[in-house]
Amino acid sequence: MLLTILVHEGPYNHQASDTAYNFIKAALGKGHEINRIFFYHDGVNNGYNSADPPQDDRNIYKRWSELGKGGIDIVCCIAAAKRRGLKDELLMEGIRISGLGQLADAVLGSDRLVTFG
């Protein structure tokens, strides 16, 4: 099954990023495909490369980056990113900035939209 993942909240402040990640790992493990991960609202804060979380905790940014480098398309909404100071030079590798059309396109082309917020 082809899934689109929508994340509405930023990392650490809410559990949404963690739940989304755990869900995606399980979905991939069961043979499902991720069409696109789309970060919206404060969700775009998941894309920053400048954060430095404590070593003894999970690194949410790196986890996303690894999924992106592994071939999953990960998009931060450009309008939401601009509001929050996120730009290309501040993006983790494997994550890109693009428009809301990328969400529409993904939702329409997927079997399921799975939202975390």
């Binding site: 919206y40 609202h41 309008a79 428009g99 809301l100 059309g101 969400l103 529409a104 396109d105 329409l108």
Partner: peptide, 13 residues
Amino acid sequence: YEGLETILIFAAF
């Protein structure tokens, strides 16, 4: 508000 922005984009589809 950001939800409204989404709807305006979806409208183009």
